[in-house]
Simulated scan of single mutants.
Amino acid sequence: MTTIDHTAADDHPHAHGDARPVRAWPVGLLAAPAFVAIWSGWVGLGELTGFGPVHPLPGIADDFSVNTAITLPIGMETYASYALYVWLSGRIRAERTRRYAKWSACGSLALGAGGQVAYHLMEASGFTAAPWPVTVLVACLPVVVLGMGAALAHMITSERHTDQAVRTLDAHDPEPAEVAEPVHAVSVREDQPDPEPDPTEIDEVAALPDRWEVLAHRVCSTDPNGRRDPHRVAAILRLHHEQQWTRAQIADHIGVSPSTVTRTLTAAAPHLSEMETTK
């Protein structure tokens, strides 16, 4: 009698077709009280450091006023949340953009935590105005947030434009159609043992350098920054010219951005033409 073990199937929720996505709405319940505490802390710190009601439209709308203390929580925490999304969402392929989003998000959260600590310490100590070093730091925060946000936006826009350019190039350079292999006639002959290969010829063939490795070293030797990896360049060239892969496929396979693949192929084009000419 055969016994079927259902333990592994029962432990795996997808075994019974339960493929429901994980809901993110509970995070809203966690974030609501944190939002209130962070908002009040930043506004209180802003009032201690000179932020307060201003009239941004004098002579146009004299009665219109804005409390600039609200700009601190809106700018700092919003940027930190969006940078975390850029870093962790997986929708950005460029390593440089993800790395910048990672460190700027961590830095924003660290600054936010420091601001909350400073406010509560001063409030508990009965300060009516913040010390001047704290005021200087807090006054610089809006400018810092604007700079980080603009830099991240430029990186994301640059990657989107690069992807569009790569798709355009791939559209003009479509995948090659599969060609049926020709049928070769086979002649019947007497079964004779193959001659033993010459060891000298084997050594000569093995000593020949790989074509793409040679081309990769030429490309890397002309790189003024010296940042290209010859093995990675050779892999890109081999996949593009031998396997006829698209730039997007090569980028996903090797782990680089499509723009890097495009720049590598562009840099290798004159060297490849020179090698073809000198054959």
Rank of each mutant, 00 (worst) to 15 (best):
S273M: 08
H271E: 14
G147M: 01
R93L: 06
V27Y: 13
N67L: 05
S158E: 12
V166E: 06
A234K: 08
P33G: 06
P56E: 07
T97R: 01
A216E: 07
L48M: 02
A69H: 06
G52A: 03
G52D: 10
D210G: 15
G28C: 09
G41D: 15
S259G: 15
G90L: 01
G114F: 00
N225Y: 10
A180V: 11
S104Y: 02
L109M: 14
Q244E: 15
V261E: 07
P209Q: 14
A130Y: 10
D191F: 05
L141C: 11
A34N: 06
V138L: 12
S81L: 13
H184P: 00
V261I: 10
A177M: 12
A185M: 00
D10Y: 09
A216M: 07
N225V: 05
P195S: 10
A151Y: 00
D173P: 00
H172G: 15
L237V: 08
A61C: 04
A19E: 14
H14T: 11
P13T: 09
A151D: 05
N67G: 06
A31Y: 03
T78E: 14
R23E: 15
G90M: 02
I250N: 07
D163S: 08
H55Y: 01
V145W: 00
E276T: 07
D198Q: 01
A15I: 02
P142L: 00
R167M: 14
W39I: 02
T68V: 02
Q243G: 02
V188R: 13
A9L: 12
H55K: 10
G107C: 03
V86F: 01
V54T: 13
V183Y: 02
P224Q: 10
T3H: 08
D62I: 01
H154C: 00
E159A: 05
R211Y: 12
W25A: 15
W39F: 12
L109Q: 13
I4N: 05
I70R: 12
M1D: 11
L152A: 09
V43W: 03
G147S: 06
Y100I: 03
G115P: 01
L215S: 10
G226V: 04
M1I: 05
A19F: 14
F64M: 04
H184W: 05
R20D: 13
L265I: 05
L111E: 14
E77I: 11
V134G: 07
A248F: 03
V166D: 08
D163R: 15
T262L: 12
V22T: 13
V145N: 07
A37G: 09
E274H: 08
R99Y: 04
T49A: 03
I202F: 00
E196T: 11
T135N: 08
P131N: 08
I236H: 07
L141V: 15
A94G: 04
S259E: 13
C140W: 04
V66Q: 08
L111I: 12
P174F: 09
E190K: 05
T264Q: 09
I92M: 05
